[in-house]
């Protein structure tokens, strides 16, 4: 094949052009969102008829952000989401990895049956159990500072506890653990470590990648929760960010404030993603290796 530099340069240019055009398709709504959050409502709506929608021009201010905070307890919503997400992720990592450790390394009566049940739950979409689960949690007991109570509605725990353990997370851990060299675990045993010591001194320190994967997947699920908190949390005290959106659609809708709120709850995640994008992508890819 003859090498033609001009032609080569042109082909390269076309490739990048295609890649960039596609990139535009994926980011234009986000660019629109961020820019609009700085514009007053009437300009925002007028701008949508031209490319001005995507540039911060005209009457630019932070007024929408102030407005959003006035309209809704934004800080509280964010705090709730962070709290619920953080607690679930941490507890999930601990409890799912422990269970997976047991499935991967220990031999016990009933293990295979229990593991099969856990794997079988993988094909139950949450949406199919949301209603009966709602019924269930509305009747569960809880012992708190005020003594015995019935019903979990309108609490943090109802947003956290049902989401801690799930088949996919356990499965990912089991797969990873089975890939660890078995001799490391045996060496630990011969050196006198108890199973608990094997877990936290040998297996956990070697599980960085799967911990990151599990944490990211859980984070995405939890931070973006919508249906579940929508039906189990009526009090604003416990509402997470996605449900908090409802505040902006009562009475007159101020689109600028909506955009400010969306920007507030989305941009931190995007920044987080941009920093950890390799881990994010690897975590999604690793869910694909199952099957």
């Amino acid at each position: 094949m003859a090498f033609d530099p001009d032609n080569y340069g042109l082909r390269l240019f076309v490739r990048y052009l295609v890649l960039c055009l596609i990139a535009l398709i994926f980011i234009f709504p986000l660019v629109f969102m961020i820019n609009s959050s700085f514009k007053p409502d009437n300009q925002l709506l007028a701008d949508t008829s031209s490319l001005r929608a995507f540039v911060p021009v005209g009457d630019i201010s932070l007024n929408n952000y102030f407005g959003a905070f006035r309209r809704a307890p934004v800080g509280l919503f964010v705090l709730n989401s962070v709290l619920v997400t953080g607690a679930t992720v941490l507890l999930s990592l601990l409890i799912c990895s422990l269970a997976a450790f047991s499935f991967a390394f220990l031999r016990w009566k009933g293990r295979d049956v229990v593991f099969s049940i856990v794997i079988a739950t993988l094909i139950i979409p949450f949406e199919t159990i949301a209603i009966p689960l709602l019924l269930l949690v509305s009747k569960l007991p809880w012992i708190g500072l005020e003594g015995l109570q019935w019903g979990w509605l309108n609490t943090y725990r109802v947003q956290i506890i049902p989401w801690i353990a799930d088949g996919l997370t356990i499965f990912l851990f089991v797969q990873y653990f089975k890939g660890l060299p078995g001799e490391l675990i045996e060496a630990g045993r011969v050196e006198g470590a108890s199973w608990w010591q094997v877990y936290y001194r040998i297996v956990m320190p070697l599980s960085g990648p799967v911990l990151a994967t599990a944490a990211i997947l859980k984070f995405l699920v939890m931070y973006n929760q919508y249906l579940w908190p929508l039906i189990v949390v009526q009090q604003e005290t416990y509402r997470p960010v996605m449900v908090g959106l409802g505040y902006f659609f009562q009475l007159n809708v101020a689109w600028g404030e909506v955009m400010a709120y969306l920007t507030l709850i989305t941009v931190p995640v995007l920044i987080f993603y941009l920093f950890l994008q390799r881990a994010f992508i690897a975590s999604i890819a690793s869910t694909g290796v199952k099957g």
């Binding site: 060299p181 490391l184 045996e186 060496a187 630990g188 045993r189 011969v190 070697l206």
Partner: peptide
Amino acid sequence: LPPKERGVAMVFQSYAIFPHM
């Protein structure tokens, strides 16, 4: 008896030394 109570030490083919230590 579990390994630790047998007074044995083992050297494995793959060395099995802990990579994080």
